[in-house]
Design a protein around this nucleic acid. Sequence first.
DNA 1: GCGACTTTGTTCCTGCGTTCACAAGCGGCT
DNA 2: AGCCGCTTGTGAACGCAGGAACAAAGTCGC
Lengths: 243, 243
Amino acid sequence: MTVHEHGRYSTGVEDLPYRSVPEAAVGRLAVYLRVLTSMIEQGVTTMSSEVLAGAAGVNSATLRKDLSYVGSYGTRGVGYDTARLVEHIERLLGLTRHHSIAVVGIGNLGHALANYPGFPDRGFPVTALFDVDEDLIGVAVGGLPVDHVDSIPAVCAEREVTIGVICTPVPAAQGVCDLLVAGGVRCILNFAPVVLQVPEDVEVRRVDLAVELQILSFHQVRRSNGNGVGPVVEPINPIAVSR
Amino acid sequence: MTVHEHGRYSTGVEDLPYRSVPEAAVGRLAVYLRVLTSMIEQGVTTMSSEVLAGAAGVNSATLRKDLSYVGSYGTRGVGYDTARLVEHIERLLGLTRHHSIAVVGIGNLGHALANYPGFPDRGFPVTALFDVDEDLIGVAVGGLPVDHVDSIPAVCAEREVTIGVICTPVPAAQGVCDLLVAGGVRCILNFAPVVLQVPEDVEVRRVDLAVELQILSFHQVRRSNGNGVGPVVEPINPIAVSR
DNA sequence: GCGACTTTGTTCCTGCGTTCACAAGCGGCT
DNA sequence: AGCCGCTTGTGAACGCAGGAACAAAGTCGC
């Protein structure tokens, strides 16, 4: 784990060999990680880029390039040692650190996320729950009592929450976001369909389910319309056509 | 990003009527749509690209180019007529069609999605629910009875389901996916952390919550490591773009 | 121990997507 | 009516990600 593999790359968690890693590559690395851990459970100790790429649904050249951001930990002629690769990807993604999660807004979705096994399984324990509903305060959800949103800053600071998950209705989202930031949270996963305003040093990722559906809708229509039938975009209003 | 090739690069299967709309633009258009409808509710009838871009969190030039894929429906010197823009974006995204949703896997997450108001609100009514658990069959969730997964093909075909949402555990996901495809579903939103194998004409979008967290984790570590320690080339993003 | 084969790591290249910048167009003001 | 200022729409440049191809490197068979 703390072995120097190559001289030019110093190891140790704090100074990893940092070239700039493309955003897209980071997302894929997380996928590789999942495939790898699953494979390890099945007893696989070595994988070639071709096989791993197939399982992850990407091009093998892309995969090798992504792994090169992590460092050169493959063996030519053989492939990658799965266990070692997992270690290094986890290190690059910062998964060796402690990441605790707060879920805000314990409605249907928040409830589901609070109980979502994928979070703790992946090293992201849920350590705080918040809502405004007085009837929910103190109620245990997934073994954890719900606190009032007003206590977000204090509780988050105390429990060293690093990631906040916002599942509130749209009107409450920005306020909750501000509270999280006040509590020292610098990473936010936002399920509310609104663009949050945050300081520069805060990272927000938005998951918008309706947008996902609309993208699917687009492809569906494009596909069925694409058979040479007609223009996708027909003018709704003849008068509206300005050219 | 789960992007199949669309646009004029695809191998002649679909010939695009007019211009090819970049995948990224489709996602943004959905966001504009949401901002616009919200603005309309507040009585806004006209918006400039600058204002709309600000609300959507994108560059105004990007926004104008995105809208140019929809058609030229702005008025120079004034801006865009919000109502008209909504109409045209909805048309491009295929939201004038009927899209009914089936949710498979009524666990915590499936339960939440079955009750998620954002779906019907955005024109995506949930019309079928499925699970394997015998105790759940027939139980009404959100006013809709749960059917057995075996009946997926028949029910989906009958109710003309266009989008399938998979919330099952990983081992069941591929089987459920096959059943959906057999039922004529060509668009799938997959919450199971696995890469699904589907025919070419089926579009899959995956939402992987653990991956989102890991990406956040990466940024968190990178940021705190960036405090003068290493040669971190941090992209200078004035706005924390969530996407 | 040596050769051939396999697979990595990287370089080059192509092509998309985003941003800049500006001309064209439209409304308002005088 | 004509000019002025504002905003759109688009042509051009740039940056970046993805894919193909290849050289280096290490292993397995003999």
